[in-house]
């Protein structure tokens, strides 16, 4: 276990040596802050306008998904591609650690960074839940917020895992980011494009299965936990993890 901790520590600290991480955080926080402002305006609007669920605007929104889709590839692109292009992978794979430990450590480090990126958004929660400091009660039901965060945590795990796998396949960080972005787009594009389909039709139902923004719009954002989505995220994350180990292993016999 201790070698894995050493690896995680090094991977995590390596994020702070490159400008990309800061760019990703800045971009993400700017967009979420803007959406928070919009939500605030809606909430304080008089009349029939407004939002029905606290985080609705934050997650049912094209700019948010564009940013959300672009950030995991930025975080994962360097994981293996950098090590391959500089040759340090040889040092890593000849140390007495198993391949899965290396993959696990890199994944955990990048997931921690992802969580860290979301942490500042917790500052909005007292406002979004209409938290009353003197009675310690929420004026607005906090459950949809909790489910939204759960969805974000799980969907992020999926996107990061895809990005990590792509990074283990290529030598160039740029190529890794672009391919990962393309694959992530398959999970997001329907939410942006919004085809005019009957929601009871088969094509729509198929699209709905793997379109992450729709999951948030119809379930997580409204306080519903649909296990089908969680299973999709979990399966894809696991698959990416597994394929990364295999791809690393294949380096050895190629």
């Amino acid at each position: 276990m201790r070698p894995t901790l050493s690896l995680i520590r090094r991977e995590f600290s390596a994020y702070f040596f490159s400008p990309i991480a800061y760019v990703a955080i800045a971009l993400f926080l700017t967009v979420t802050a803007y959406l928070f402002c919009l939500t605030l305006l809606m909430l304080t609007e008089r009349g029939p306008d407004g939002v029905s669920y606290s985080m609705e605007l934050l997650v049912n929104n094209v700019p948010f998904w564009l940013v959300f889709m672009a950030i995991p590839p930025l975080l994962t692109m360097r994981l293996f591609a950098e090590e391959r292009s500089t040759g340090t992978l040889e040092m890593l794979l000849t140390a007495p650690v198993r391949d899965w430990q290396v993959v696990f450590a890199k994944y955990v480090a990048c997931y921690i960074f992802y969580v860290l990126m979301w942490l500042p958004t917790l500052l909005y929660l007292p406002v979004l839940t209409d938290w009353k400091w003197w009675t310690l009660e929420c004026g607005i039901d906090p459950w949809p917020i909790f489910t939204t965060y759960l969805g974000v945590a799980c969907a992020g795990a999926m996107f990061l895992s895809i990005g990590m796998f792509v990074s283990s396949m290529v030598k160039s960080q740029m190529v890794a980011a672009l391919i990962a972005l393309f694959i992530s787009m398959l999970f997001v594009v329907v939410g942006i494009w919004r085809p005019d389909l009957d929601t009871s039709d088969l094509p729509y139902r198929i699209l709905f299965y793997f379109t992450v923004p729709l999951h948030f719009e119809r379930n997580f954002g409204r306080g519903l936990i649909d296990t089908r989505h969680l299973i999709l995220y979990g399966t894809v994350a696991f698959l990416g993890f597994f394929l990364t180990i295999r791809s690393l292993e294949s380096r050895r016999w190629r």
């Binding site: 201790r2 050493s6 090094r10 040889e90 040092m91 140390a95 007495p96």
Partner: peptide, 20 residues
């Protein structure tokens, strides 16, 4: 090949960690 963004002692500390 080495991690160029690390200091010498940091690097050795890290390598000692993964070597047990």
């Amino acid at each position: 090949p080495l991690y160029t963004e690390m200091r010498v002692n940091e690097y050795l500390h890290f390598r000692a960690g993964i070597k047990g």
